[in-house]
Amino acid sequence: MKYSPLGNSGLSVSRVCLGSMTWGVQNTQADADQQIGYALDKGVNFIDTAEMYPVPPSEATHGDTERVIGNWLSRNESQREKLVIASKIAGPGFPYVRDNSMISGDSIQVALDDSLARLQSDYIDVYQLHWPNRTSPHFGKHWLNQVKASTQDVAAEKDRMRDIVLGLGKALSSGKIKHWGLSDDTPWGIHTYLQLCNELNVARPVSIQNEFNLLHVKDWPYLIESCVFEDIAYLPWSPLSGGMLSGKYLGGARPAGSRWTMEQRQGLFRNTENAEKAVAAYCDVAKRHGITPSQLALAWCDQVDGVSSTIIGATTMAQLEENIAAFELELPEQCLHEIDEILRDYPIPF
């Protein structure tokens, strides 16, 4: 296993980050225990979760993924200090989570205590803002004029962000979190938080996790450049585009128990004609080079300059083994050239 610095945190994290959002719906406690054990044996030291997991989210299962991890930690206390555990506070979007309130300095204290109790831990290594309070161009909202920056009340947004930074400062001072990070944010969000941290003398964010994969490269190069220059770890989530890049959904297939057979909060917005064509082309490249489509997509993500660690997920052990093995691969130049040609043909397929 290879490792990279987690931004300016001083932590060294595995190039594989074990995602957990299926634990509690598609996966049982026993499944999660097996996944964690295997990942640790392979050198993974980085686990990502969130208070709103598992996915699809519901009031009945809210927080269950953190509970699953907490149950494992309670039986493996000696492993806690070896792990970097990241979790996330939810923003508005769920009536059953703090009455659909925005992230604030006060809500951070409440959400953090709840997460710590579920995780059965005294601290969280990286506490992340799951998405901005303002509507941002993520989750399929990246096409022209879907999100209009000109309609935002920038002063009010900055005031909310200032309050968040102060709340994070309290959490850092208390020792309940060691570092903090962003998720589903933009270059403006990154730089505004950096300015506020300097203004308020609070530690800077160490990471950001955004959707990034062969079907969704909008963070390259501009946001990723900001991350590299500001020493902020860039953590791709959904490197298989919701499983699409594995090829398992080609031709309208819906394997039993797969994510696309379950409720989708934003619908299957990735499932477009061009995305289907792009996936078929990437599958052909993978076949020519003797690897699986998933391994092609993950190994490609890992070699992108500026990527620090890639968040993977799996519902079966076979998938987890296949995915972790992808990070031992070095794609040959011919393979990368073939991938680039497809990217140029389908730069924004959904």
Score class of each variant (00 low, 15 high):
V55M: 12
L11C: 13
C227K: 08
Q303N: 13
V55Y: 13
E66D: 13
L250G: 02
G181H: 05
L172D: 00
H289M: 07
K148A: 11
P92R: 15
L73A: 09
P5C: 01
S9V: 09
K277A: 00
I69V: 07
P137S: 04
C17T: 13
I224L: 02
W72P: 00
I124N: 03
A171K: 02
N71H: 14
G251P: 05
M1C: 06
L240Q: 12
P57K: 06
G24C: 06
P95H: 11
K287H: 04
H337Q: 14
A314F: 10
F269R: 12
D33V: 04
P293I: 00
L119P: 05
G257Q: 04
C301R: 04
E338H: 03
G247W: 05
L166E: 02
Y123C: 07
E330P: 00
A32N: 06
Q266R: 13
R118L: 09
V68C: 05
R80P: 03
I190Y: 04
I124P: 06
S309D: 13
A171M: 03
G19F: 06
D153N: 15
P293H: 01
R98T: 03
R80H: 09
D114G: 11
D345I: 09
S14H: 01
Q34K: 15
G306R: 10
K176T: 00
A256I: 12
R15K: 15
S12T: 03
T272E: 00
W220Y: 11
L245P: 12
V304T: 11
P239Y: 01
N201T: 06
R15E: 14
L329A: 08
F94C: 03
M102Y: 13
S174P: 03
S150D: 15
F229C: 01
Q334G: 09
N145P: 01
A50T: 10
H138W: 12
L296H: 00
E328N: 14
T292S: 15
Q264A: 11
A326E: 03
L40C: 07
N210V: 03
L112I: 08
Y282T: 01
P349T: 00
D159I: 10
P239N: 01
K2T: 14
Q146M: 15
I190A: 05
S246I: 07
N198V: 06
T261M: 04
D159V: 14
G19V: 06
P236A: 00
